[in-house]
């Protein structure tokens, strides 16, 4: 039965809420049992809002991957070793 408000046509137990809050992470990780994966896929095939939700969720993950690598200050390792040595000397 079509949900007029959202455009979701998916029948059955898997609602948009269950898909997004309970299943999405496991689906992305590939750790979902086969029967649940099939139910998930059936829902998506009939639910344009969930398709859009999923593609923007995946785009979020791709966007976060761009944050790496962060520039490391040059000579940081040397500065760390000098700092630790100087604090040890202070203590001695």
């Amino acid at each position: 039965m079509k949900n007029e408000d959202t455009g979701c046509h998916a029948p059955g137990d898997v609602t948009c809420q269950r898909l997004i809050l309970d299943y999405l992470l496991a689906f992305e990780e590939g750790t979902m049992p086969a029967d649940e994966r099939d139910a998930f896929r059936r829902h998506i095939e009939m639910c344009p809002p969930c398709v859009e939700f999923l593609s923007t969720y995946e785009a979020t993950g791709r966007t976060l991957k761009l944050l790496k690598p962060r520039d490391i200050p040059p000579d940081l390792a040397k500065a760390v070793v000098s700092f630790v040595r100087s604090r040890r000397r202070d203590k001695e």
Binding site: D5, T6, T15, L21
Partner: peptide, 11 residues
Amino acid sequence: PRFNSDGHLAS
């Protein structure tokens, strides 16, 4: 995300 009482995505 917000959902309607029937569990579908809110508009």
